[in-house]
Write a protein that binds this DNA or RNA. Structure first.
Lengths: 213, 213
DNA sequence: TCCTTGCTAGTCAAGTTTGACTACGCGATT
DNA sequence: AATCGCGTAGTCAAACTTGACTAGCAAGGA
Protein backbone atom coordinates (compact mmCIF):
# COMPACT_ATOMS: atom_id res chain seq x y z
CA UNK A 1 0.00 0.00 0.00
CA UNK A 2 1.33 3.41 -0.88
CA UNK A 3 0.43 6.42 1.21
CA UNK A 4 -1.20 8.41 -1.56
CA UNK A 5 -4.78 7.25 -1.08
CA UNK A 6 -4.72 7.81 2.64
CA UNK A 7 -3.22 11.28 2.17
CA UNK A 8 -5.69 12.33 -0.52
CA UNK A 9 -8.74 10.94 1.27
CA UNK A 10 -7.65 12.61 4.48
CA UNK A 11 -7.07 15.94 2.81
CA UNK A 12 -10.44 15.93 1.06
CA UNK A 13 -12.11 14.85 4.28
CA UNK A 14 -10.67 17.76 6.27
CA UNK A 15 -11.89 20.26 3.69
CA UNK A 16 -15.29 18.67 3.21
CA UNK A 17 -14.98 19.53 -0.45
CA UNK A 18 -11.78 20.25 -2.33
CA UNK A 19 -10.30 20.39 -5.79
CA UNK A 20 -7.05 18.78 -6.80
CA UNK A 21 -4.89 21.82 -6.47
CA UNK A 22 -6.10 22.39 -2.92
CA UNK A 23 -5.21 18.82 -1.97
CA UNK A 24 -1.86 19.22 -3.65
CA UNK A 25 -1.20 22.33 -1.60
CA UNK A 26 -2.17 20.72 1.66
CA UNK A 27 0.14 17.83 1.02
CA UNK A 28 2.94 20.22 0.26
CA UNK A 29 2.18 22.08 3.47
CA UNK A 30 2.52 18.81 5.36
CA UNK A 31 5.84 18.18 3.62
CA UNK A 32 4.34 15.04 2.08
CA UNK A 33 6.12 15.56 -1.22
CA UNK A 34 9.32 15.02 0.75
CA UNK A 35 8.51 11.69 2.32
CA UNK A 36 5.90 10.19 0.00
CA UNK A 37 4.98 9.98 -3.65
CA UNK A 38 2.58 12.92 -3.42
CA UNK A 39 3.37 14.45 -6.79
CA UNK A 40 0.78 16.15 -9.01
CA UNK A 41 0.30 13.22 -11.34
CA UNK A 42 -0.22 10.77 -8.51
CA UNK A 43 -2.62 13.06 -6.68
CA UNK A 44 -4.86 13.71 -9.69
CA UNK A 45 -4.72 10.05 -10.61
CA UNK A 46 -5.75 9.00 -7.12
CA UNK A 47 -8.63 11.50 -7.13
CA UNK A 48 -9.99 10.20 -10.44
CA UNK A 49 -9.51 6.58 -9.49
CA UNK A 50 -11.23 6.95 -6.15
CA UNK A 51 -14.07 8.88 -7.77
CA UNK A 52 -14.50 5.99 -10.20
CA UNK A 53 -14.58 3.61 -7.25
CA UNK A 54 -17.23 5.57 -5.38
CA UNK A 55 -14.99 6.78 -2.57
CA UNK A 56 -15.24 10.37 -3.79
CA UNK A 57 -17.92 12.33 -5.61
CA UNK A 58 -16.75 14.54 -8.48
CA UNK A 59 -18.39 17.90 -9.19
CA UNK A 60 -17.58 19.82 -12.34
CA UNK A 61 -17.14 23.46 -11.44
CA UNK A 62 -16.86 26.68 -13.44
CA UNK A 63 -13.30 27.90 -14.13
CA UNK A 64 -11.87 29.65 -11.11
CA UNK A 65 -11.64 33.40 -10.89
CA UNK A 66 -7.89 33.08 -10.63
CA UNK A 67 -7.54 31.78 -14.16
CA UNK A 68 -6.47 28.41 -15.34
CA UNK A 69 -8.46 25.41 -16.55
CA UNK A 70 -11.85 24.40 -15.12
CA UNK A 71 -11.58 22.64 -11.83
CA UNK A 72 -13.17 19.50 -10.50
CA UNK A 73 -14.20 19.51 -6.89
CA UNK A 74 -14.34 16.30 -4.88
CA UNK A 75 -16.45 15.40 -1.91
CA UNK A 76 -15.90 12.36 0.27
CA UNK A 77 -18.64 9.73 0.33
CA UNK A 78 -19.63 7.46 3.21
CA UNK A 79 -17.71 4.63 1.64
CA UNK A 80 -14.77 6.98 1.21
CA UNK A 81 -14.82 7.87 4.90
CA UNK A 82 -14.96 4.18 5.80
CA UNK A 83 -12.02 3.50 3.54
CA UNK A 84 -10.15 6.39 5.13
CA UNK A 85 -10.46 4.87 8.58
CA UNK A 86 -9.57 1.42 7.28
CA UNK A 87 -6.40 2.75 5.69
CA UNK A 88 -5.61 4.87 8.74
CA UNK A 89 -5.87 1.92 11.13
CA UNK A 90 -3.79 -0.24 8.81
CA UNK A 91 -1.13 2.44 8.50
CA UNK A 92 -0.71 2.61 12.27
CA UNK A 93 -0.66 -1.09 13.04
CA UNK A 94 0.97 -2.80 10.09
CA UNK A 95 4.72 -2.91 10.20
CA UNK A 96 5.71 -1.47 6.85
CA UNK A 97 9.36 -0.74 6.56
CA UNK A 98 8.22 2.23 4.48
CA UNK A 99 8.12 5.49 6.42
CA UNK A 100 5.61 7.13 4.12
CA UNK A 101 2.55 5.17 5.19
CA UNK A 102 3.31 5.52 8.88
CA UNK A 103 4.00 9.24 8.46
CA UNK A 104 0.62 9.71 6.82
CA UNK A 105 -1.02 7.70 9.58
CA UNK A 106 0.57 9.85 12.29
CA UNK A 107 -0.64 12.91 10.43
CA UNK A 108 -4.23 11.74 10.75
CA UNK A 109 -4.00 9.96 14.09
CA UNK A 110 -5.99 12.64 15.87
CA UNK A 111 -8.99 11.76 13.68
CA UNK A 112 -9.33 8.70 15.91
CA UNK A 113 -10.31 8.65 19.54
CA UNK A 114 -7.46 8.71 22.00
CA UNK A 115 -8.12 5.22 23.36
CA UNK A 116 -8.19 3.67 19.91
CA UNK A 117 -5.01 5.48 18.89
CA UNK A 118 -3.18 4.03 21.88
CA UNK A 119 -4.55 0.59 21.26
CA UNK A 120 -3.51 0.62 17.60
CA UNK A 121 -0.01 1.77 18.51
CA UNK A 122 0.27 -1.02 21.07
CA UNK A 123 -0.74 -3.42 18.35
CA UNK A 124 2.04 -1.95 16.24
CA UNK A 125 4.63 -2.55 18.93
CA UNK A 126 3.44 -6.13 19.30
CA UNK A 127 3.69 -6.65 15.53
CA UNK A 128 7.25 -5.35 15.49
CA UNK A 129 8.25 -7.54 18.39
CA UNK A 130 6.65 -10.57 16.80
CA UNK A 131 8.39 -9.90 13.52
CA UNK A 132 11.70 -9.46 15.28
CA UNK A 133 11.39 -12.71 17.17
CA UNK A 134 10.47 -14.73 14.13
CA UNK A 135 13.08 -13.21 11.88
CA UNK A 136 15.97 -13.61 14.31
CA UNK A 137 14.96 -17.19 14.96
CA UNK A 138 14.42 -18.02 11.31
CA UNK A 139 17.38 -16.35 9.69
CA UNK A 140 20.00 -17.33 12.24
CA UNK A 141 22.04 -19.96 10.45
CA UNK A 142 22.76 -23.16 12.30
CA UNK A 143 26.44 -23.21 11.33
CA UNK A 144 27.37 -19.82 12.71
CA UNK A 145 26.99 -16.31 11.28
CA UNK A 146 30.08 -16.72 9.07
CA UNK A 147 28.18 -19.06 6.79
CA UNK A 148 26.09 -16.22 5.43
CA UNK A 149 28.92 -13.70 5.45
CA UNK A 150 28.14 -10.06 4.98
CA UNK A 151 24.55 -10.94 4.03
CA UNK A 152 23.87 -11.16 7.75
CA UNK A 153 24.38 -7.41 7.91
CA UNK A 154 21.15 -6.92 6.01
CA UNK A 155 19.19 -8.71 8.70
CA UNK A 156 21.18 -6.89 11.31
CA UNK A 157 20.05 -3.60 9.81
CA UNK A 158 16.39 -4.66 9.70
CA UNK A 159 16.48 -5.69 13.32
CA UNK A 160 18.24 -2.50 14.35
CA UNK A 161 15.67 -0.35 12.63
CA UNK A 162 12.79 -2.43 13.95
CA UNK A 163 14.06 -1.88 17.46
CA UNK A 164 14.30 1.84 16.88
CA UNK A 165 10.78 1.88 15.48
CA UNK A 166 9.40 0.04 18.49
CA UNK A 167 11.17 2.38 20.87
CA UNK A 168 9.82 5.45 19.13
CA UNK A 169 6.31 4.00 19.12
CA UNK A 170 6.50 3.35 22.86
CA UNK A 171 7.52 6.96 23.38
CA UNK A 172 4.59 8.19 21.35
CA UNK A 173 2.19 5.98 23.31
CA UNK A 174 3.51 7.47 26.53
CA UNK A 175 3.05 11.03 25.28
CA UNK A 176 -0.49 10.34 24.12
CA UNK A 177 -1.42 8.67 27.40
CA UNK A 178 0.02 11.64 29.25
CA UNK A 179 -2.58 13.81 27.53
CA UNK A 180 -0.72 15.24 24.57
CA UNK A 181 -2.61 16.49 21.53
CA UNK A 182 -6.34 16.80 20.90
CA UNK A 183 -8.11 13.72 19.59
CA UNK A 184 -11.54 13.15 18.05
CA UNK A 185 -14.37 14.09 20.39
CA UNK A 186 -12.13 16.21 22.60
CA UNK A 187 -13.15 19.64 21.39
CA UNK A 188 -11.60 21.99 18.88
CA UNK A 189 -9.56 19.80 16.51
CA UNK A 190 -6.09 20.73 15.39
CA UNK A 191 -6.28 22.52 12.05
CA UNK A 192 -3.92 20.86 9.65
CA UNK A 193 -4.90 22.55 6.42
CA UNK A 194 -4.12 25.92 4.96
CA UNK A 195 -6.90 28.46 5.09
CA UNK A 196 -7.52 30.21 1.82
CA UNK A 197 -4.92 32.86 1.27
CA UNK A 198 -2.72 31.66 4.10
CA UNK A 199 0.91 31.48 3.16
CA UNK A 200 2.65 28.15 3.27
CA UNK A 201 5.72 28.60 5.47
CA UNK A 202 7.19 25.28 4.40
CA UNK A 203 6.56 25.61 0.68
CA UNK A 204 10.19 25.74 -0.38
CA UNK A 205 13.68 25.42 0.98
CA UNK A 206 12.80 22.28 2.84
CA UNK A 207 15.74 19.92 3.15
CA UNK A 208 15.43 16.86 1.02
CA UNK A 209 15.88 13.54 2.83
CA UNK A 210 17.87 12.18 -0.04
CA UNK A 211 16.13 10.08 -2.60
CA UNK A 212 13.13 9.31 -0.41
CA UNK A 213 10.38 7.66 -2.38
CA UNK B 1 15.46 4.90 -7.44
CA UNK B 2 14.06 1.48 -6.74
CA UNK B 3 16.38 -1.37 -5.88
CA UNK B 4 15.41 -3.60 -8.78
CA UNK B 5 18.04 -2.49 -11.28
CA UNK B 6 20.86 -2.79 -8.79
CA UNK B 7 19.68 -6.23 -7.74
CA UNK B 8 19.26 -7.53 -11.26
CA UNK B 9 22.54 -6.10 -12.54
CA UNK B 10 24.34 -7.51 -9.53
CA UNK B 11 22.84 -10.94 -9.95
CA UNK B 12 23.67 -11.13 -13.64
CA UNK B 13 27.16 -9.88 -12.92
CA UNK B 14 27.87 -12.58 -10.35
CA UNK B 15 26.80 -15.29 -12.77
CA UNK B 16 28.56 -13.84 -15.77
CA UNK B 17 25.62 -14.94 -17.85
CA UNK B 18 22.15 -15.71 -16.57
CA UNK B 19 18.57 -16.09 -17.65
CA UNK B 20 15.61 -14.49 -15.93
CA UNK B 21 14.62 -17.45 -13.86
CA UNK B 22 18.12 -17.77 -12.46
CA UNK B 23 18.11 -14.11 -11.42
CA UNK B 24 14.69 -14.56 -9.92
CA UNK B 25 15.95 -17.51 -7.90
CA UNK B 26 19.01 -15.68 -6.64
CA UNK B 27 16.90 -12.78 -5.48
CA UNK B 28 14.59 -15.14 -3.68
CA UNK B 29 17.61 -16.78 -2.07
CA UNK B 30 18.69 -13.37 -0.80
CA UNK B 31 15.20 -12.79 0.56
CA UNK B 32 14.86 -9.81 -1.79
CA UNK B 33 11.22 -10.51 -2.52
CA UNK B 34 10.63 -9.75 1.15
CA UNK B 35 12.21 -6.33 1.34
CA UNK B 36 12.07 -5.08 -2.25
CA UNK B 37 9.87 -5.19 -5.31
CA UNK B 38 11.72 -8.14 -6.79
CA UNK B 39 8.71 -9.94 -8.25
CA UNK B 40 8.79 -11.86 -11.53
CA UNK B 41 7.18 -9.13 -13.59
CA UNK B 42 9.57 -6.48 -12.34
CA UNK B 43 12.61 -8.67 -12.84
CA UNK B 44 11.79 -9.60 -16.43
CA UNK B 45 10.85 -6.02 -17.17
CA UNK B 46 14.13 -4.74 -15.78
CA UNK B 47 16.09 -7.29 -17.82
CA UNK B 48 14.39 -6.28 -21.07
CA UNK B 49 14.66 -2.61 -20.34
CA UNK B 50 18.33 -2.76 -19.47
CA UNK B 51 19.01 -4.88 -22.55
CA UNK B 52 17.32 -2.20 -24.62
CA UNK B 53 19.53 0.41 -22.97
CA UNK B 54 22.72 -1.48 -23.66
CA UNK B 55 23.48 -2.41 -20.06
CA UNK B 56 22.86 -6.06 -20.79
CA UNK B 57 23.27 -8.21 -23.86
CA UNK B 58 20.42 -10.60 -24.67
CA UNK B 59 21.07 -14.04 -26.16
CA UNK B 60 18.22 -16.15 -27.43
CA UNK B 61 18.80 -19.70 -26.29
CA UNK B 62 17.25 -23.05 -27.15
CA UNK B 63 14.48 -24.26 -24.81
CA UNK B 64 15.94 -25.73 -21.68
CA UNK B 65 16.16 -29.46 -21.16
CA UNK B 66 13.90 -29.06 -18.17
CA UNK B 67 10.99 -28.03 -20.33
CA UNK B 68 9.18 -24.75 -20.43
CA UNK B 69 9.38 -21.85 -22.86
CA UNK B 70 12.62 -20.80 -24.60
CA UNK B 71 14.86 -18.80 -22.37
CA UNK B 72 16.78 -15.62 -22.92
CA UNK B 73 20.19 -15.38 -21.38
CA UNK B 74 21.69 -12.04 -20.42
CA UNK B 75 25.28 -10.97 -20.18
CA UNK B 76 26.46 -7.77 -18.54
CA UNK B 77 28.18 -5.21 -20.79
CA UNK B 78 30.91 -2.77 -19.84
CA UNK B 79 28.36 -0.01 -19.56
CA UNK B 80 26.24 -2.31 -17.43
CA UNK B 81 29.11 -2.94 -15.05
CA UNK B 82 29.76 0.79 -14.82
CA UNK B 83 26.10 1.38 -14.08
CA UNK B 84 26.22 -1.34 -11.44
CA UNK B 85 29.00 0.42 -9.56
CA UNK B 86 27.31 3.79 -9.94
CA UNK B 87 24.08 2.44 -8.45
CA UNK B 88 25.98 0.56 -5.76
CA UNK B 89 27.86 3.64 -4.62
CA UNK B 90 24.68 5.70 -4.66
CA UNK B 91 22.81 3.08 -2.64
CA UNK B 92 25.43 3.18 0.11
CA UNK B 93 25.85 6.93 0.38
CA UNK B 94 22.48 8.47 -0.37
CA UNK B 95 20.16 8.68 2.57
CA UNK B 96 17.03 7.02 1.26
CA UNK B 97 14.48 6.40 3.90
CA UNK B 98 13.72 3.26 1.89
CA UNK B 99 15.36 0.14 3.26
CA UNK B 100 15.28 -1.72 -0.02
CA UNK B 101 18.01 0.22 -1.79
CA UNK B 102 20.34 0.15 1.17
CA UNK B 103 19.72 -3.57 1.69
CA UNK B 104 20.67 -4.24 -1.91
CA UNK B 105 23.76 -2.08 -1.51
CA UNK B 106 24.88 -4.00 1.56
CA UNK B 107 24.35 -7.22 -0.34
CA UNK B 108 26.87 -6.12 -2.96
CA UNK B 109 29.20 -4.10 -0.75
CA UNK B 110 31.94 -6.72 -0.95
CA UNK B 111 32.19 -6.08 -4.70
CA UNK B 112 34.00 -2.88 -3.73
CA UNK B 113 37.40 -2.62 -2.15
CA UNK B 114 37.45 -2.43 1.62
CA UNK B 115 38.78 1.13 1.74
CA UNK B 116 36.14 2.43 -0.61
CA UNK B 117 33.37 0.66 1.26
CA UNK B 118 34.43 2.34 4.48
CA UNK B 119 34.72 5.70 2.82
CA UNK B 120 31.25 5.44 1.26
CA UNK B 121 29.73 4.46 4.59
CA UNK B 122 31.41 7.41 6.27
CA UNK B 123 29.90 9.60 3.59
CA UNK B 124 26.56 8.08 4.44
CA UNK B 125 26.91 8.93 8.12
CA UNK B 126 27.85 12.48 7.20
CA UNK B 127 24.80 12.76 4.94
CA UNK B 128 22.51 11.56 7.71
CA UNK B 129 24.01 13.96 10.19
CA UNK B 130 23.73 16.84 7.76
CA UNK B 131 20.13 16.00 7.00
CA UNK B 132 19.35 15.79 10.69
CA UNK B 133 20.89 19.15 11.46
CA UNK B 134 19.13 20.95 8.67
CA UNK B 135 15.76 19.36 9.30
CA UNK B 136 15.73 20.02 13.02
CA UNK B 137 16.75 23.59 12.45
CA UNK B 138 14.32 24.17 9.63
CA UNK B 139 11.21 22.47 10.94
CA UNK B 140 11.44 23.71 14.51
CA UNK B 141 8.68 26.29 14.73
CA UNK B 142 9.56 29.63 16.25
CA UNK B 143 6.44 29.73 18.43
CA UNK B 144 6.97 26.46 20.25
CA UNK B 145 6.24 22.87 19.26
CA UNK B 146 2.55 23.22 20.18
CA UNK B 147 1.99 25.35 17.11
CA UNK B 148 2.37 22.36 14.84
CA UNK B 149 0.62 19.94 17.18
CA UNK B 150 0.89 16.24 16.54
CA UNK B 151 2.44 16.93 13.13
CA UNK B 152 5.71 17.37 14.99
CA UNK B 153 5.61 13.66 15.74
CA UNK B 154 6.26 12.94 12.08
CA UNK B 155 9.51 14.84 12.19
CA UNK B 156 10.29 13.26 15.52
CA UNK B 157 9.97 9.86 13.91
CA UNK B 158 12.20 10.78 10.98
CA UNK B 159 14.89 12.04 13.30
CA UNK B 160 14.62 9.00 15.53
CA UNK B 161 15.03 6.65 12.60
CA UNK B 162 17.84 8.71 11.12
CA UNK B 163 19.72 8.44 14.40
CA UNK B 164 19.22 4.70 14.44
CA UNK B 165 20.45 4.46 10.86
CA UNK B 166 23.57 6.46 11.63
CA UNK B 167 24.33 4.34 14.67
CA UNK B 168 23.97 1.12 12.72
CA UNK B 169 26.18 2.46 9.95
CA UNK B 170 28.90 3.37 12.46
CA UNK B 171 28.75 -0.16 13.81
CA UNK B 172 29.13 -1.60 10.35
CA UNK B 173 32.11 0.66 9.63
CA UNK B 174 33.77 -0.56 12.80
CA UNK B 175 33.23 -4.21 11.90
CA UNK B 176 34.61 -3.70 8.41
CA UNK B 177 37.65 -1.84 9.69
CA UNK B 178 38.25 -4.63 12.16
CA UNK B 179 38.67 -6.98 9.22
CA UNK B 180 35.27 -8.56 8.83
CA UNK B 181 34.21 -10.09 5.52
CA UNK B 182 36.12 -10.54 2.30
CA UNK B 183 36.18 -7.60 -0.11
CA UNK B 184 37.21 -7.23 -3.74
CA UNK B 185 40.83 -8.09 -4.33
CA UNK B 186 41.16 -9.98 -1.07
CA UNK B 187 41.01 -13.51 -2.41
CA UNK B 188 38.19 -15.98 -2.66
CA UNK B 189 34.99 -13.89 -2.78
CA UNK B 190 31.92 -14.81 -0.79
CA UNK B 191 29.58 -16.83 -2.97
CA UNK B 192 26.17 -15.27 -2.83
CA UNK B 193 24.43 -17.20 -5.56
CA UNK B 194 22.94 -20.64 -5.70
CA UNK B 195 24.95 -23.21 -7.58
CA UNK B 196 22.93 -25.20 -10.03
CA UNK B 197 20.96 -27.85 -8.24
CA UNK B 198 21.64 -26.39 -4.81
CA UNK B 199 18.57 -26.20 -2.65
CA UNK B 200 17.38 -22.82 -1.46
CA UNK B 201 17.09 -23.05 2.33
CA UNK B 202 15.15 -19.79 2.55
CA UNK B 203 12.75 -20.43 -0.30
CA UNK B 204 9.57 -20.51 1.77
CA UNK B 205 8.33 -20.02 5.28
CA UNK B 206 10.22 -16.78 5.61
CA UNK B 207 8.54 -14.32 7.96
CA UNK B 208 6.96 -11.40 6.16
CA UNK B 209 7.96 -7.95 7.43
CA UNK B 210 4.42 -6.74 7.11
CA UNK B 211 3.40 -4.92 3.99
CA UNK B 212 6.94 -4.10 2.96
CA UNK B 213 6.99 -2.65 -0.53
C1' DT C 1 -2.56 -45.63 -19.33
C1' DC C 2 -4.26 -41.45 -17.61
C1' DC C 3 -4.25 -37.83 -14.28
C1' DT C 4 -2.52 -34.78 -10.99
C1' DT C 5 1.10 -32.20 -9.05
C1' DG C 6 5.10 -29.50 -9.25
C1' DC C 7 8.89 -27.23 -11.40
C1' DT C 8 10.71 -24.35 -15.12
C1' DA C 9 10.29 -20.06 -17.58
C1' DG C 10 8.05 -16.34 -18.79
C1' DT C 11 3.84 -13.21 -20.52
C1' DC C 12 0.16 -10.02 -19.98
C1' DA C 13 -3.36 -6.55 -18.77
C1' DA C 14 -4.47 -3.41 -15.40
C1' DG C 15 -3.05 -0.16 -12.36
C1' DT C 16 0.37 3.28 -10.59
C1' DT C 17 4.13 6.62 -10.71
C1' DT C 18 7.05 10.01 -12.84
C1' DG C 19 8.48 14.28 -14.85
C1' DA C 20 7.70 17.17 -18.28
C1' DC C 21 4.38 19.71 -20.44
C1' DT C 22 -0.01 22.81 -21.48
C1' DA C 23 -3.02 26.70 -20.90
C1' DC C 24 -5.06 30.62 -18.72
C1' DG C 25 -5.11 35.19 -16.50
C1' DC C 26 -3.02 38.87 -13.75
C1' DG C 27 0.35 42.27 -12.41
C1' DA C 28 4.75 44.30 -13.18
C1' DT C 29 8.32 45.61 -16.40
C1' DT C 30 10.17 47.25 -20.40
C1' DA D 1 1.38 48.36 -25.66
C1' DA D 2 3.81 44.19 -25.59
C1' DT D 3 5.66 40.74 -22.93
C1' DC D 4 7.63 38.43 -19.12
C1' DG D 5 7.12 35.85 -15.28
C1' DC D 6 4.28 33.84 -11.73
C1' DG D 7 0.51 31.38 -9.67
C1' DT D 8 -3.40 28.38 -10.79
C1' DA D 9 -5.05 23.95 -12.38
C1' DG D 10 -4.40 20.05 -14.57
C1' DT D 11 -2.94 16.60 -18.64
C1' DC D 12 -0.13 13.24 -20.85
C1' DA D 13 3.10 9.64 -22.51
C1' DA D 14 6.44 6.71 -20.92
C1' DA D 15 8.03 3.89 -17.56
C1' DC D 16 7.37 0.82 -13.78
C1' DT D 17 4.86 -2.49 -10.73
C1' DT D 18 1.58 -5.99 -9.58
C1' DG D 19 -0.71 -10.36 -9.49
C1' DA D 20 -2.70 -13.53 -12.10
C1' DC D 21 -2.09 -16.33 -15.84
C1' DT D 22 0.07 -19.63 -19.66
C1' DA D 23 2.55 -23.61 -21.27
C1' DG D 24 5.81 -27.47 -21.50
C1' DC D 25 7.74 -31.41 -19.42
C1' DA D 26 8.69 -35.00 -15.74
C1' DA D 27 7.72 -37.92 -11.88
C1' DG D 28 4.57 -40.48 -9.34
C1' DG D 29 0.28 -42.59 -8.20
C1' DA D 30 -4.34 -44.87 -9.26
Amino acid sequence: MSAIRLLVLGAVRQHGRAHGYQVRNDLEYWGAHEWSNAKPGSIYHALKQMAKQGLLLAHEVAPSTAGGPPRTEYEITDRGAQEFFTLLRASLTSYDQGVDVLSAGIGFIVDLERAEAVSLLRERVAAIEGWRASVTEHYTPADGPESIGHIGEIMNMWVHSADAGAEWTRGLIARIEAGAYTFAGEGEPFVGVLSLGQENPYATGVPDPGDAH
